[in-house]
C-alpha cells in the first residue's frame, strides 16, 4: 500500500492523517508535508498513525525532524497510535520518551485543552 496523507485543523491542533506504509520510499512525502505545515505557521501538530501499516527508522527520522522543527517555535508534535507493531518500534528506539503518544485524537485534544 502506498502512503496517503491528509491534514485538517481542529481546536488549534493541526491533525495529520497518515495511512499506509512509511518507509525509505514514501517518508520524503511526509517530511515535505511536515515542513510545509511548519513553514505555514502550524506549530501544534498531531500525527494520527492509526492507519499506518508499516513504519521504519526512515519514518522515525522524519517524525523526529518534524518534532525538532516545531520545538524551534515552542510547538509540539505528538502522535496517536495504539497499534502494538508500530509502538514496538518507538519502544526499541527509546522514542516513547520523546513523543507524546495518545490512544485517540479526542484524547490528545482533551490533553491539549487542559494545557490551555
Amino acid at each position: 500500500m502506498d502512503l496517503k496523507l491528509d491534514h485538517r485543523t481542529e481546536d488549534g491542533l493541526t491533525i495529520v492523517e497518515v495511512e499506509g506504509e512509511i518507509d525509505v520510499y514514501t517518508a520524503p512525502r511526509l517530511r515535505e508535508l511536515l515542513i510545509d505545515l511548519v513553514n505555514k505557521g502550524n506549530f501544534r501538530l498531531l500525527v494520527n498513525m492509526e492507519k499506518v501499516d508499516f513504519l521504519d527508522s526512515t519514518g522515525l527520522g522524519v517524525l523526529v525532524g518534524g518534532l525538532k522543527r516545531v520545538r524551534a517555535h515552542d510547538g509540539s508534535l505528538e502522535l496517536v497510535c495504539t497499534q502494538e507493531r508500530i509502538l514496538k518500534i518507538f519502544r526499541i528506539t527509546g522514542l516513547t520518551k520523546v513523543f507524546g503518544i495518545y490512544a485517540s485524537v479526542d484524547e490528545a485534544k482533551e490533553a491539549h485543552g487542559k494545557d490551555k
Binding site: D56, S57, L60, G61, I92, T93
Partner: peptide, 8 residues
C-alpha cells in the same frame, strides 16, 4: 538517525 536502522 542513519544509525537507527541497525538498532531497530
Amino acid at each position: 538517525m542513519s544509525g537507527f536502522g541497525i538498532a531497530v
